[in-house]
Design a protein around this nucleic acid. Structure first.
Lengths: 123, 123
DNA sequence: GTTTTAGTACTAATTAATTAGTATGAGACG
DNA sequence: CGTCTCATACTAATTAATTAGTACTAAAAC
């Protein structure tokens, strides 16, 4: 058997990124945005957004004739869950080795680190 | 269609973690390690390791009667690829917002940050 | 030498993720 | 009013990921 993902899957995330950029979104809004990047069918977007609503990532209200969707959870929360899940899967729950990777391979200078460190300890 | 993953999938990663801990591994070695954690069939492990060999994550040599597997790429390289893939998917290629998440939600103190920062700039 | 053991190769089934087609209905428009 | 447009609901097909069974073979054990 194949375990169902506890976080956003790849395409779900693509849709949520569009939705988070906007105050509210119809299927057509998201469809047109995604269509700029790749071939996709309107009903594909609709199906995905229905799934996201069932998974409690989106909430919908009926406006005029079409559903209007809004995020059901703040972006930071959802992304934070994905980061946590990644750290669990790849680093057995320990954040520090991920940080080491970032510093060593992702062009993060000590200056940037210090700046970010101040987020936790405002001087 | 469903795009094939460019990085290690969840169960592939579980097997690679076991292999990386050891100098060399047979299917039985990995099977017995995984069995301590969960129910799994010997042939399941064998199939997965064959896939990992085809994907160039493992290389095998025939020793005695059974294949002996070794990592074909260093762990740091493979994990680094996974980190890069995650940053691409979730943060559109930018490492800094991931760092902010780590600092804010994963108990990383400024002291730890400074220590890690020294990895890049040995005093 | 026959049987038991332990390995691989091959096949296949299941489920999640992704994609999209078809049917249907309500409102806009002539 | 009939038709066109645009929305949803429902159904279904495809592929990747995961799991494991069965057949076969060679060596070990008796």
């Amino acid at each position: 058997m194949r375990r169902r993902s506890t976080t956003l899957t790849e395409q779900e995330l693509e849709i949520m990124k569009v939705v988070w950029e906007r105050d509210h979104s119809t299927v057509r809004d998201v469809y047109e945005t995604l269509l700029e990047r790749r071939k996709i069918a309107y009903t594909t977007v609709m199906t995905m957004m229905k799934i996201l609503e069932q998974k409690k990532y989106l909430k919908k209200t009926l406006a005029d004739r079409a559903y209007v969707y809004r995020p059901a959870q703040p972006k930071g929360q959802v992304i934070g869950d994905m980061v946590r899940d990644f750290i669990n899967r790849v680093f057995n729950g320990s954040a520090e080795p991920l940080l080491v990777h970032l510093v060593q391979e992702h062009d993060l200078s000590p200056e940037e680190l210090e700046e970010i460190a101040r987020l936790r300890r405002p001087s």
